[in-house]
Design a protein around this nucleic acid. Structure first.
Lengths: 173, 173, 173, 173
DNA sequence: GATGAATGAGATTTCATTCAT
DNA sequence: CATGAATGAAATCTCATTCAT
């Protein structure tokens, strides 16, 4: 990947995350990246191709980010780690997640491959803890972190720590 | 509001919810409503005005929908009722919420007036239950129902009841 | 069909015929027709739709033009009439035919419905004249008038009349 | 001419003939020829230069192909040979002629130098045969083979032989 | 109130061509 | 000689909005 390609990708991610995919024209991306508009299409074929490239890159970096959490032995650590996840996003990951969450709502672009390993780890953990219905418990946590992520991504809560504590207590982790 | 106005409003809500606000042209709305495109602008000034009108209407109907839940005396009933809320959406409310949730992600249109009374009721309930930090507890529940709503609106979970049970148990309500 | 629609259609026919379909941008058509570019798409959906509309109109006018030739009783009159056809094109028909002939060469847009009745009439005429192979004779004449039409449409021959005479003599009509 | 230059030329001829000059981008030519796009411009300056080179090459090969027909002594053999010409195209010549015929219709690129010797030979032949108006007769045959060529190049007629026979009979050759 | 013709700005995309390496 | 990254102009098309009737 050349320097310009990377510049396009990062600029597009930023703008897509901030202003939405639909509302961000390729012309805006090109201008912000300091690049001719044609170059975007030469490298990424079309606007959707640009989005795909962002997704591939983002997914990789996201997976590598939470891999070590899922691999822990102690089930409580796994659950706690997962619940804390949305609070610990890097800037790049922040933009990627924001874009990902916004895209859920249009078309069926949403890609389950990104949450599947998390769910698996949760089921595992709840099984170890002898939960009655580990699958339902896992789904419950997924809902919860979806809500947490939404809140974080939209920069809403001021009292993050306090909220986190009440939640962790509920789960006894 | 005349019959035509109502037709426009309902059609627009449906299309905006199903295909997104940006991706739905005023021309599509007009065609689907069986109305000339000009009429939309005569009644609602511009596309944003149409959206506003939808929001006003939706909010009213939403508030009236959960008013009786917030007014209950028993704090546990209030909390339980609020958590169950997303599972009990009528078709019209379903579309409104879907649109509302999708719009969160673009621009800063999000309107707190719609969740404010819910938060208040939750704080009240948790105070009655002698929670340590009622505000944080309330925020926690709000996050949770955000996640639940997202899941319901995107028609994902099959085992709704089981999930709901595990959650209610956590909250002991 | 409104006045503007007609203006667009006629202007497009002229430009397409003179400069080719591919080389004529919708912007050029709009400018030449004194109309906004968007209007073309509102009325004809896309550039191809504009072409189709031209074709439909042109075919009608063309068919009505040579109908009376095909309907004559005397077979020699029919053959003579058909051979003379390309020499008697009105300005509008001239442009239509030029466009039609140019389009033959790109894609498989060519529409046989326009030459089919001519072929039928020729077969009929040659049958009446007891030709050995009326079908082959008809095809032969079609080739010939294709050549003639090409020549006329590209404004080549100066000595049209003399050429026409030698040909008619060959066919003894 | 290097091997690469030849590859470019042949590939371009093929694509131009099959899909049209306008519709064939230099990028497609480069890809199909297995060559960088820049190389086309290094060798042929611009797209039009590429076309010119094709024309020069094609004309040479075309002329050499029918030279021996034009040089025959017997006038009837000359006329017959010329009429049969379009039925005897090699693959390479086929593409060249298809391109040539398609290009007639756009711009005034048509090059008379290619048909001039044929016309001369025809006038000569008809003069020897004591035709009343040899020039008109020659033009008549040129029209005819134009029609025949068009038909052959667009791969239309199934009963080629029968058609050819009726025509040759008309010309008594 | 209602229509629908018309506009103009802007979106995505294509493509011949240039140029540093 | 050869590559391929990069450009910029132009092409097709979309869409919110205006306006005469």
């Amino acid at each position: 990947m050349t320097e310009r390609q990377e510049k396009i990708l990062n600029t597009a991610l930023k703008l897509f995350a901030e202003n939405g995919y639909d509302s961000t024209s390729t012309s805006k991306v090109a201008k912000a990246a300091g690049v001719s508009e044609g170059l975007i299409f030469r490298h990424y074929t079309n606007k959707e191709g640009l989005l795909s490239a962002i997704m591939v890159q983002g997914k990789q970096s996201a997976l590598s980010m939470y891999k070590y959490i899922l691999d822990q032995q102690d089930p409580k650590s796994v659950i706690r780690g997962i619940i804390k996840l949305p609070f610990t996003l890097s800037e790049e990951n922040y933009n990627f997640w924001k874009l990902l969450y916004a895209l859920k709502w249009q078309a069926d672009v949403y890609d389950h491959s990104i949450s599947a390993p998390v769910k698996e780890a949760l089921i595992n953990a709840f099984t170890k803890l002898n939960a009655e219905d580990p699958d339902a418990e896992a789904e419950g946590v997924l809902l919860l972190i979806d809500g947490i992520a939404t809140s974080v991504l939209l920069r809403k809560p001021e009292n993050k720590q306090a909220i986190l504590q009440t939640i962790l207590k509920k789960y006894n982790v």
